[in-house]
Every structure is written in C-alpha cells, then in structure tokens.
C-alpha cells in the first residue's frame, strides 16, 4: 500500500532549443495563475481591518480574553473555591477569598487574572464547577503598560448569585456586597501603584484603593 512519488519516465534529454521554449512556457503558465487573480479582484481575501471593525465577528469559542459573566442584576457565579487557580498551569489566576461578615462562609474577594502570563489554555473555564468563567473573543486588548494587563474579573466581592438570590431584603443584599473595579484592590502588579490606572478602570466612586505602604514594599498578593 505504498506508492512512489510521480516521477516521469526517463526520456531522452531535451535539446537546448526545445528546453528553452519548454522553460519559457512553464514560466508563462505560472504567470497565468497570478494574472488570473490580477484580473479577478473578487478573489481577494484580505480582511480590511480596522475598516471592517463593525462586521468583524470572532467565533463563539474564541479564546482571547477571560471574563466572568455577570447576570442582569450584576451578580456573578464565583464562589471563590480556588479550583481554577489549581488548574492554571502557570499561576495566571489568583483567587483571594474572604469570610462573609454575617454568614461566615467563604466568598470571593478578588479574582485576579494576569493576561500578560496567560496561555489561554481554557483549563480554568473547563474545570469551573459553577460555570462562572468564560472565554470571549474581544481581541483589542492593547495597553501602554504591561501592568494594565492584570485584571480584577469580579465586579463585586461577596456571595455568588444563587446565594444572593436567597437573601430577600435588598438592603441586606447590598450589605453583603463590596464593589470592585477592573484595576482595584491588590493589583496592579505586586501591589505597586501606577499612575493613571484608576482613570482607565473607571471604578465606582465608593471604592477605596487598597494599596498600602506594605504592598508597595513588595508583598505579592
């Protein structure tokens, strides 16, 4: 079940004049292919980015950016169980949990995702038992400082959506929640503060930056 590559049977060598014309014809045939595309501009496949930004759609499963989807009430499903942190091959995810003030149960405080070291292997999304994480195709992620690639994915610190749904009093629900911005809290990198971060992240007014003197000295989260 094997085959030899197509080799032409040994013919007597082509003379110089015939060889010359055969060579010329082979070149013209090749030119014909390119000429065909030259006169058929409809075959052009080049994408006109950024002109086509409006219509450019990435596939549903595109693994370009990790996100934590929040429902219409603004609640996420993360419980701070650290499973994604263990599954991450290179520690791009750091989960900082806290104890709830009233129920004393574990809940998420900061979900820190380092895009600069992420390999987009999708293991965190696959292993999450609560489907709290999702990869999406938002590919325009350029920033001017590497440290801006370290994100806080949760919009609030507090119980996950199912636990919050059980609390009926809206005032009580609000007391359980502390808002978190994209760049707020223990990040940026190794706790060092960075100019302009707050303006980029647009965190709510109520939130206080938790970077302290000790953090700046090099205590990593």
């Amino acid at each position: 079940m094997t085959m030899q590559t197509p080799t032409k049977p040994a013919k007597k060598p082509v003379g110089p004049i015939r060889g010359f014309f055969k060579g010329i014809s082979s070149l013209l045939k090749g030119m014909g292919v390119t000429f065909k595309y030259f006169v058929h501009p409809s075959t052009v496949v080049t994408q006109q980015y950024p002109e086509n930004r409006e219509t450019l759609k990435m596939p549903d499963r595109a693994r370009i950016r990790l996100s934590m989807p929040h429902d219409e009430n603004g609640y996420h499903k993360c419980t701070g169980c650290h499973i994604c942190e263990d599954a991450c091959p290179n520690r791009s995810i750091t989960v900082v949990d806290r104890k709830n003030a009233t129920t004393k149960r574990q809940e998420i405080d900061h979900f820190i995702w380092r895009m600069d070291s992420c390999t987009f292997c999708n293991l965190c999304v696959v292993v999450c038992p609560f489907t709290a994480l999702k990869m999406h195709g938002d590919f325009e992620n350029s920033v001017y400082d590497r440290r801006l690639l370290i994100y806080n994915l949760n919009r609030y610190a507090g119980p996950a959506a199912p636990a919050l749904a059980k609390i009926e009093d809206p005032e009580e629900r609000k007391r359980n929640i502390d808002e978190r911005g994209v760049y707020s809290g223990l990040i940026p990198m190794n706790g060092s503060a960075i100019a302009g971060v707050r303006a980029c992240g647009k965190p709510p007014e109520s939130e206080k930056v938790r970077v302290t003197e000790d953090d700046i000295k090099g205590e990593s989260p």
């Binding site: 596939p59 499963r61 595109a62 987009f120 292997c121 999708n122 696959v126």
Partner: peptide
Amino acid sequence: LEKTTGARLTMNYIQPGGLMFDLH
C-alpha cells in the same frame, strides 16, 4: 479549527480522556 477549538495556533483541544469541546 478556530471555530471548533477556539484557538488558531495553540489549540490545547485534545485532552487526556477525550476532547475539550464537541465539534462545532
């Protein structure tokens, strides 16, 4: 491949015990 695996180069699609996703 991108439509099914979600990545263009480093797919990480075939996993021990099966596949990461079903086919698109």
